[in-house]
Every structure is written in structure tokens, then in C-alpha cells.
């Protein structure tokens, strides 16, 4: 397992996800992916579901990957990586590995569309089968690659192009699916949440390093603030991610062996959700008088969930 010490040391890691990709300026995907692939010194085979990361990092004739990489379709990043991992096991058993001297780790990336929605079955299957891989969900809470449609990860009240705010609508009607807990319920040995950026960089890198060194299926749900569709300025990506943590809209925690929950970061003073919501155009309509009740509801739900996490941690179950 790669020791994630200080940032000065971590920054010596040669990048394995190259620039020159076509992700939007300020896209959190680039930050998260760099940290994850840099969190191990082992070789990597990466699969990626159709989505922003995939279409931006392998536009022929260019690839942004200094590691082996595979894209098949939208719903099968986990199935694809499980096949590659099975081949590694088979060749290893038959003494036919291409590089005997190298350890190979397997990582799949998917957006929330490719993970919460269309790819969930293949993720659930690959996890249940116990393949040795890390799945990282780049959760930008909607189908941002196709112009910002709602997914089952879109939070209540958010405007998307298929759950638009309107004369009689406050936007998305349903609560965000709690995928992290669902993945933990698979009994996966390691499941965690993370955000990109300089404040919580170590939390993410250490989680990736831990996940990659854990034998079996592991899962990281990384919030990926989307400058384009959440409607904030590109330079604010890190701040938005940090606010998600400070408001407890997206708490940082990990679950080991399907049950042992640890909260990794506790805001000193929990920031009201307004702070987070008001900085994003997708929630601007919630500040109209007729929608204010929803902000209160969101706050109540965030408080309830934060309480739940703390009680679970205390209970040690």
C-alpha cells in the first residue's frame, strides 16, 4: 500500500492521467481521477463507463491515459473490469502473465448515471462476485455529458433539463439515492465517500490507496461538483466540494466490511445548507418565497442523516 504522507511527497508522483483531455475547465473529474490513479505505485488497468470522463479522455486519435484503459459502454464498466481481473487471475494461475515483476490493480470509473442508474446491475454483480477491483463513482448528480438531465443521484430541488424548475415546479422531486450505503450492504470490504480538492486531498488519496490495497471489491463515491451544470464559476469547484462537506450535504465517511462506519471529517460548525445551495445556479429557484420550505426540508434531512451517521458510528455497527 502506498503511504500517503504529506502533499509535498505525493506531488512527486508522476501523473498517469494526462492533460490535453477535453473535460470542462475546472472539472472535478480530472482532480479525482488524478488522485486515484496516483494513489498506488502498482500498474493499473482502468475501465470507464460512457460519460464525461470517457468521452473527454479518449477522443481518437488521443488518449489521456498512461495506464491500460478500456471503455465498452454506459452500463458495463464494472462487468468489463471484472473480465479483465478474471483474465489476470487466469494468466497468473497458468504462469502466463505478461510482466511477472509487476502487480496489477483494477479500477473502474463511472459517473452517477453509469453507476447509480444504468450501470448499477453490473456494479452490483461484480461486487457480489468478489472481484478484486476499486470502483470510483464520479458523482456529479446528473447526466452532465448529455446536457444535464436528472439521474437517481440528483438531489431534491435541483434544476436539471429533465426535472426543470418551472411555473409549477421546484425541480427534482426525489431524494438522492443513497448508493454508498447500498454498496456497503453488499458486504464489500471497503466503501467510502470523498470530495476533490486541496482541503480533503489526503482523505481521498488515502481512501484510494486503502481501497486499492484491500483484496476484494471496493467502492468510493466521490462528489464531483460540475461547473457547467450546477452553474458555478470554474474556479469555485474546490470550494463547492468543501461546502458540501461543511454543510454535511455530502459527509465524508467510510464503511469497512459492510458495517463498521467511521466518520472521517466533522465540521467544527455545521454550515447551513443555504450556503451550499445559494452558490449554485441549479438551486437558485429555491430562494423564491414559494420554495423556501424546501430549503428547510433539505436542512432537516441533512441534520437527520448526519445524526444517523454519528449514531451508527457510536454504535459500532
Amino acid at each position: 500500500m502506498k503511504n500517503i504522507g504529506n502533499l509535498k511527497e505525493f506531488a512527486c508522483t508522476p501523473d498517469r492521467f494526462q492533460g490535453g483531455h477535453r473535460l470542462c475547465p475546472g472539472c472535478a473529474h480530472g482532480m479525482i481521477v488524478r488522485e486515484v490513479v496516483n494513489a498506488t505505485d502498482d500498474d493499473l488497468v482502468v475501465s470507464t463507463a460512457t460519460g464525461c470522463l470517457e468521452v473527454c479522455s479518449a477522443i481518437y486519435p488521443y488518449t489521456s491515459w498512461d495506464v491500460s484503459w478500456l471503455h465498452i459502454g454506459f452500463e458495463n464498466a464494472a462487468a468489463g473490469i471484472s473480465g479483465a481481473e478474471a483474465m489476470y487471475k487466469a494468466l497468473s494461475r497458468k504462469n502466463k502473465l505478461y510482466n511477472e515483476d509487476r502487480n496489477v490493480k483494477f479500477v473502474a470509473f463511472g459517473g452517477d448515471g453509469g453507476t447509480y442508474d444504468i450501470g448499477f446491475q453490473s456494479l452490483s454483480g461484480a461486487t457480489e462476485r468478489g472481484h478484486d477491483f476499486l470502483y470510483v463513482c464520479l458523482d456529479n448528480e446528473g447526466y452532465m455529458n448529455t446536457g444535464g438531465q436528472r439521474s437517481s443521484s440528483t438531489p431534491i430541488g435541483a434544476h436539471t433539463t429533465t426535472s426543470p424548475r418551472g411555473r409549477v415546479s421546484y425541480g427534482e422531486k426525489h431524494r438522492k439515492k443513497d448508493l454508498t450505503m447500498i454498496m456497503a450492504a453488499h458486504g464489500a470490504p471497503y466503501v467510502a465517500t470523498a470530495v476533490p480538492g486541496s482541503k480533503h486531498w489526503k482523505d481521498l488519496a488515502a481512501k484510494a490507496a486503502k481501497a486499492l490495497s484491500t483484496v476484494g471489491p471496493t467502492f468510493i463515491n466521490a462528489l464531483s461538483p460540475c461547473t457547467t451544470e450546477w452553474k458555478f464559476k470554474p474556479e469555485d469547484t474546490v470550494e463547492i466540494g468543501d461546502l458540501a462537506v461543511e454543510t454535511c450535504m455530502f459527509p465524508l465517511y467510510e464503511i469497512e466490511d459492510g458495517h463498521k462506519l467511521t466518520i472521517n471529517y466533522r465540521p467544527k460548525n455545521k454550515v447551513p445548507v443555504e450556503e451550499y445551495l445559494s452558490k449554485q445556479g441549479r438551486f437558485s429557484h429555491l430562494f423564491k418565497p414559494e420554495n423556501k420550505w424546501l430549503i428547510e426540508e433539505i436542512q432537516k434531512e441533512v441534520d437527520r442523516y448526519w445524526e444517523y451517521l454519528q449514531r451508527r458510528e457510536e454504535a459500532g455497527v
Binding site: 502533499l7 506531488a11 472539472c27 488524478r34 486541496s198
Partner: peptide, 27 residues
Amino acid sequence: CDFCWVSCPDSCFIVEEVENKRGKKQA
């Protein structure tokens, strides 16, 4: 501090590996 390096989505920061006073590598 390398905050820029870790937050850059485009892998733009050019890093040189140097030794600190205690002989540890740093960027």
C-alpha cells in the same frame, strides 16, 4: 504546498523532485 498541483484537473503543474533538508524527496 502543492495545493495547485493536487487541485489541477489538467495535470498542468510541472514538478521537479528535490530533497529537503532532512534528505526526504519533495516536490
